[in-house]
Amino acid sequence: MTEPLDAVDERILALLGADARMTNAALAAQLGVAPSTAHSRMRSLVDRGVVTGFHAAADQTALGRGLQAVIGVTLRPGARHESIRAFTHHARRLPEVLQVFFVGGSDDFLVHIAVADSSAVRRFVVERMSAHASVASTRTSIIFEYHRNGLAADFD
């Protein structure tokens, strides 16, 4: 089990969540500790697997992909393990896909995409999702607005 986080650890995570490019000196100043302390605390969070990476957030609109959607995907019954693996491999390598969630409930997967427009959503669902051999059905929800509080590490 991972060592519990204290108030300094939680503050480091909050500061880096707001600005992952923050320098060690700026982190130390915000924490009110010596730079060597900030560095060792940060190193400890990485070594313990609490901090798993530093990420750049891209503006999808600036990339020409201003429309986002979540597609609920239900797989066909039978050979579930193989279908799950095949679909996961397929979905994760598609350039439109931002995130893939394997979930419990009425859907087997939620696939978060970013594309140029509604025609691209339709093409993606018809050609990339529904055409996959293991897909039984899809449900598409257009995202109007969202807020991300943080990033989760991969489950793999």
Score class of each variant (00 low, 15 high):
72 G>Q: 06
111 V>R: 00
92 R>I: 10
85 R>H: 12
111 V>C: 06
123 R>E: 06
72 G>M: 03
75 L>W: 03
82 E>G: 11
94 L>P: 09
86 A>L: 04
71 I>L: 13
101 F>V: 01
89 H>G: 12
115 V>N: 05
84 I>P: 00
127 E>W: 04
78 G>M: 06
104 G>K: 06
86 A>I: 01
64 G>H: 13
84 I>G: 01
62 A>I: 07
89 H>L: 06
125 V>S: 08
76 R>K: 15
112 H>P: 01
89 H>S: 15
79 A>R: 12
68 Q>I: 00
84 I>W: 01
101 F>Y: 13
82 E>K: 10
62 A>F: 12
98 L>F: 07
102 F>Y: 14
127 E>I: 09
72 G>L: 06
96 E>M: 07
110 L>E: 10
72 G>C: 08
127 E>G: 13
89 H>Q: 15
70 V>I: 15
103 V>D: 01
66 G>D: 13
111 V>D: 06
92 R>P: 02
114 A>K: 10
85 R>S: 13
81 H>I: 03
113 I>E: 04
64 G>F: 09
124 F>Y: 12
62 A>P: 06
86 A>Q: 07
65 R>E: 11
95 P>Y: 05
120 A>I: 10
108 D>N: 13
98 L>V: 12
107 D>F: 09
66 G>R: 11
93 R>M: 03
122 R>F: 05
95 P>I: 10
70 V>E: 02
80 R>S: 08
105 G>W: 01
105 G>M: 05
88 T>Q: 15
114 A>T: 08
121 V>Y: 04
96 E>T: 08
114 A>Q: 11
105 G>A: 13
127 E>K: 15
98 L>A: 11
128 R>S: 12
101 F>L: 14
70 V>S: 02
110 L>S: 05
101 F>C: 03
79 A>Q: 09
87 F>D: 05
75 L>P: 04
123 R>F: 04
79 A>C: 07
88 T>M: 11
70 V>W: 00
100 V>C: 09
118 S>D: 07
128 R>G: 00
124 F>I: 08
104 G>L: 12
110 L>W: 07
109 F>R: 00
103 V>E: 02
126 V>E: 15
110 L>V: 01
95 P>E: 14
113 I>C: 07
95 P>F: 09
99 Q>M: 10
70 V>G: 00
73 V>Q: 00
104 G>M: 11
82 E>C: 04
72 G>K: 05
64 G>K: 10
98 L>K: 02
98 L>M: 09
96 E>A: 15
110 L>P: 01
71 I>A: 09
105 G>P: 03
97 V>M: 02
101 F>W: 08
99 Q>W: 09
128 R>M: 04
114 A>S: 14
117 D>L: 11
67 L>S: 02
104 G>E: 11
